[in-house]
Amino acid sequence: MAVKKDYKDQNLAEKLRDRKYYAPDSNPEFLKEVENIGQTAAHMCYQCGTCTGSCPSAPRSSYRIRLFMRKAVLGLEEECLTDPDLWLCTTCYSCTDRCPRDLAPTDAIMAMRNLAFKRDIVPRNFLQTVQLIYKSGHGVPNNDANRAARKKLGLEEEPETTHKYPEYLPGIRKILDHYRLKENADRILAEGE
C-alpha cells in the first residue's frame, strides 16, 4: 500500500505523494470489466505502442492510449476513469485497425468511458446529446433556418424521421428510460451547474 504521509502542508503532501505502484492499491476487477464491456482481450496487450503511434490525438495532447491499456491491465481504475485524457479519443479506430495483437484499444477506451459514466464522470456535451435525443429523437435536431432551406429544395420541412412522426418518440423515451439515461443526464447536468 502506498505510504500515507500526513504532512500538515497539503501542497507538500501532494508534491511528495508516494507514486509507487502497489498491487493492493489496484482493482483487478477493472480489467475484467473493461474486457467484458469492450469485448476485447486487453490483457493480451504487449505494449508495442502501435496504438499511440496511430492516434491522431496523441501528438497534440498527453493522451496515450497505450498507457490506458497498461493501466487497465494493472487495475488502475481510479486513474483511468478520472483522467480527462480519456475523452480525447476520436474513436477513429486506426489503433484497432493496426493492433498486431488484434485487440480493439478503441473499444477498451469506450468501455472505460462507460465505467466512468457509472460514476457520473462524463463531459457535459455527451449528456446534452442525450437530452436532445430524448426530446426530439435527434442529436442534431431541425431548426427554422433548415426548415426554410428544406422547403426551398422541395423537401418537406420535417424529415421522415421522428421529426415528422413524433408518435415514435414515446418508444424511444421508453428505451432511454429503461436505462435511466435521461434521468441520470438531467441529474448530472444539474449537479454540475
Partner: peptide, 12 residues
C-alpha cells in the same frame, strides 16, 4: 520500474 507505466513499482 514499470517502464511502460513510467512509475516505480513495489510488488510484494
Amino acid at each position: 520500474e514499470d517502464t511502460l507505466l513510467g512509475r516505480p513499482i513495489d510488488m510484494e
